[in-house]
């Protein structure tokens, strides 16, 4: 290729651009889109008792999910994920407000303090709680020292709740922080000058303006909680499974791929629903702002 040709290249070489994005498109299409379509199709297939599926079309798999056993797990997971997301949002909002209000030169360090636990291995952050809550752990030892008889808090529902909160709390901080940082500092000042109390300024200025960040944080905590399977097993003894546990069990132990696929579709639909809710909530907040 001569120099003259290459220099005039950028204008006329749109196809090269497409060539460059081709591998990424291939990965997304072949390894995400097509597989998701296959699972969607499998969720309507007749299960083969020997494993795999027999094809055909049936709604039986979804009907099976209406069995109280499965409904209970779905309901429990939704409640757990929603509760966890709300607590993460509240705590995340407090932490993000504090960091965004700190001196500019201190903010990177404070963010670093949240980034380190966030990027630490998920499994390590989970089994770490056994050191604290397990038999002979810090909490039990401390309780015994003050005369309270305790044995072990693992497995327990409390340990699962605490570990879920711990796992997703850092995730909630970043989008809220970004939204708060994006707010023109003169707005809360103006609100204060106009007689708004600290609380009113938060409720009527900061909260609506950071709504997109809050919605993003909700998305990043609610949906992944549904798919968690490690925490209920390691800290809950598998007694109160989440949807994630059910999917893993259906696929790896029961080998009922059709039912497992239907369950995965339920999670996917819940994800889409929560995206829609988050988008609507953001829009409502935005329209309140302008009215």
């Amino acid at each position: 290729m001569s120099k003259v040709e290459t220099r005039s290249a950028p204008r006329s070489t749109t196809w090269q651009g497409y060539l460059l994005v081709a591998p990424a498109v291939a990965v997304i299409v072949l390894l995400v889109v097509v597989p998701t379509i296959i699972v969607a199709r499998e969720s309507f297939a007749i299960p083969d008792p020997l494993g795999g599926t027999l094809g055909g079309f049936t709604l039986d798999n979804y009907a099976t999910l209406l069995d109280p056993v499965y409904l209970k797990t779905i309901g429990y997971s939704l409640g757990m994920a929603a509760a966890n997301a709300v607590v993460c949002l509240v705590v995340g909002y407090v932490v993000a407000t504090w960091i965004a209000g700190a001196k500019a030169e201190r903010q990177p360090l404070l963010l670093l303090l949240v980034i380190i636990p966030f990027w630490t291995d998920f499994l390590v952050r989970t089994f770490a709680w056994i050191n604290i809550l397990g038999s002979g752990g810090i909490v039990v030892t401390a309780l015994r020292a003050v005369g309270i008889d305790a044995d072990s808090f693992v497995p327990s529902q409390g340990a699962v709740v605490l570990s879920l909160l711990y796992a997703f709390l850092p995730v909630a901080v970043f989008p809220i922080y970004a939204a708060l940082r994006g707010i023109d500092p003169s707005l809360p000042e103006a609100a204060t000058d106009l007689g708004c109390s600290w609380w009113q300024t938060q409720r009527r200025v900061m909260l609506p303006l950071s709504a997109p960040g809050i919605a993003a944080a909700f998305m990043l905590t609610f949906v992944p909680t549904l798919g968690v399977f490690v925490i209920p097993v390691l800290l809950g003894g598998g007694l109160d499974p989440l949807v994630g546990n059910l999917i893993v069990t259906l696929f790896t132990e029961f080998r009922n791929q059709a039912l497992g696929s239907a369950m995965a579709m339920v999670v996917l639909v819940l994800m889409l629903a929560s995206v829609a809710v988050a988008a609507i909530a953001t829009r409502i907040a935005a329209s309140r702002r302008t009215s």
Binding site: L31, V32, F251, A264
Partner: peptide, 11 residues
């Protein structure tokens, strides 16, 4: 955006 467990199952 898609829950990781759905991607895993799909793969």
């Amino acid at each position: 955006v898609i829950p990781e467990i759905v991607i895993g199952v799909a793969l």
